[in-house]
Design a protein around this nucleic acid. Structure first.
Length: 501
RNA sequence: GCCCCCAUCGUCUAGCGGCCCAGGACGUGGCCCUCUCAAGGCCAAAACGAGGAUUCGAAUUCCUCUGGGGGCACCA
């Protein structure tokens, strides 16, 4: 196989029937990358031929999700383009015209069987342990007669007249040739009784009319791929290149993701839905990096990719055909990597909404000073609240038990805090350079470890046992506030706190 | 049940007949660094599903089995 150099025309063709999840995101991403890599066009097409399953909010979530991921399309329902409309529900007449062509050329036929008859037929076949399939009752109807019944307004669908003998071979660029016996293919309905085309017809017609050169779609289309080949050949059109991407499995690798698994993931702070990922504190850069590597690889070493890297290095002949289990902890890893390479101002901007959401009033210049202390500690953006919330708090409430240093009593810990207080109070300013040396000297003279002394101070000043570096934090909190907090800690340690309240 | 597809560490993957007693990454364990937590550095455990066949030689080719996934709608 060779890489693609010619500009491609590719499409992401979601159906607005639910939420945008990782698989749709990856599909959109790969199409986008291929288009950008080759200087071609990326088309968004809405496949909304099923009015019963239509979810009004789905399309907006899809568009928001793609914007968030950083994927812009060149043609689509909102931006237009030379091959519109890009919404299948608006292309009804086009499909009917092409269906008529198939009937005229003998590749399709009108079928007047009722849904009830089909249901009964299916049940009988299942009882006899046969494959459910259309029995071909209307296949042999006189063409003239059928046309008259249609003209009279009789309810009907249009079926593709699949050959009964021989085999059909189609080419999947990832797996190679796929061959099936035609007798195992059904006479699929291609136009419903409401006059709207089904995927099998609509997608093939649109891909042709929109001059799609490469079709990237889910592997759930593999079984009907030969049918699609047959339809394309019936029209005498050239086949685009087809790539069937593997599905995503649940994190355990055992079985595909279900609604239940999605709910479980949410409990652990993960989600398979793009929109949720943003709210959970993931960077679009990290999500892109992560999903790009599920089913595709660049080489045996490189794992960190920006969007620009991917556009440059993406190659359609490095897809992996096997299903991939979703690994959320790896997303955390990528998120950390991408957070660490952000500019300070950029990180501040992205982290701010999470602080605001937690109820803090956020001063931008203060936040900017805090960023260097937390940047390498963040795995997700929402962690900013636990790592830096105390900076924005007027009062903190350390636990007495946390204030007691290992190996010391409460009273001893209070004494240590007292000594710290005196040293810090005597300093003209509370910078790292001026505060740390005398504090280390104090540790020395106390005959304690740095961990013990700084531990007490840490809890006193931040209210937490885990925090960003102590002296850097104190410098930002400020002299007065630090001293006040230590006073309060001493009171708590000596049991005077309740009296104060 | 029938059809199609897939099969390397727990997970994502590299490997396209000798470079492989299998490389990278996440995660896990240990060590270093260290005021906590991270980050970073070093080290370790961890895989070619099974059986045949082809070949001087197979993770790599072929067959069978097993396992997993997908499909069998007037859904996409």
């Amino acid at each position: 196989m060779t890489g693609i150099e010619q500009p491609v025309r590719v499409r992401f063709a979601p159906s607005p029937t639910g939420r945008m999840h990782l698989a749709s995101g990856r599909m959109a991403l790969y199409n986008y990358l291929l288009a950008r890599k080759t200087g071609g066009q990326f088309i968004l097409r809405i496949e909304d031929t099923d009015q019963k399953r239509y979810v009004p909010t789905a399309e907006q979530e899809l568009i928001d999700g793609m914007h968030w991921l950083g994927l812009q399309w060149d043609e689509g329902p909102d931006v237009g383009g030379p091959y519109g409309p890009y919404r299948q529900s608006e292309r009804k007449a086009i499909y009917q015209e092409y269906a008529r062509q198939l009937i005229e050329s003998g590749h399709a036929y009108y079928c007047f069987c009722s849904p009830q008859r089909l249901e009964k037929l299916r049940q009988e076949q299942q009882q006899r342990k046969e494959n459910p399939h259309y029995d071909g009752l209307c296949r042999t109807l006189d063409v003239q007669e059928a046309a008259e019944r249609v003209a009279r307004g009789e309810k009907h669908v249009i079926r593709f007249k699949t050959p009964k003998e021989g085999t059909t071979t189609v080419m999947d660029e990832i797996r190679g040739e796929i061959t099936v016996e035609n007798r195992l293919l059904d006479d699929y309905i291609i136009v419903k009784s409401d006059g709207l085309a089904l995927y099998h017809l609509a997608a093939m017609v649109d891909d042709h009319l929109m001059k799609i050169t490469h079709v990237l779609r889910g592997s759930e289309w593999l079984p009907t791929f030969p049918l699609h080949g047959l339809i394309i050949r019936a029209f005498g059109w050239e086949m685009p290149r087809f790539y069937h991407l593997s599905v995503f499995l649940k994190p355990s690798g055992k079985g595909k993701m279900s609604k239940r698994d999605a709910a479980d993931a949410m409990k652990d702070g993960f989600s398979i839905y793009i929109k949720d990922l943003a709210e959970l504190g993931y960077l679009p850069e990290a999500v892109v990096n992560w999903i790009a590597l599920m089913g595709w690889s660049y080489d045996d070493q490189t794992e960190f990719f920006t969007m620009d890297d991917l556009i440059q290095k993406f190659s359609v002949d490095r897809f992996n055909p096997s299903p991939a289990a979703i690994n959320f902890t790896k997303l955390d890893h990528f998120n950390g990597l991408h957070i660490r390479r952000l500019e300070r101002e950029d990180l501040a901007r992205r982290v701010k909404p999470f602080l605001v959401r937690a109820g803090y009033f956020v001063d931008d210049s203060l936040l900017l000073r805090i960023i260097p202390l937390i940047q390498e500690r963040l795995s997700t953006l929402d962690e900013v609240v636990q790592f830096a919330g105390f900076f924005f708090e007027e009062e903190i409430h350390p636990l007495r038990e946390d204030l007691i240093a290992k190996g010391l009593t409460a009273e001893q810990s209070a004494d240590v805090a007292e000594r710290c207080y005196q040293v810090l109070k005597g300093l003209p300013r509370l910078t790292v350079e001026e505060a740390e040396p005398p504090m280390r000297a104090l540790v020395e003279s106390l005959g304690l470890t740095a961990g013990q002394v700084f531990g007490i101070l840490r809890v006193a000043v931040t209210g937490q046992k885990v925090s960003p570096p102590l002296f850097e934090s104190m410098e930002i909190i400020g002299h007065d506030k630090v001293l006040k907090r230590i006073e309060k800690a001493i009171a708590i340690l000596r049991g005077e706190e309740t009296l104060k309240n």
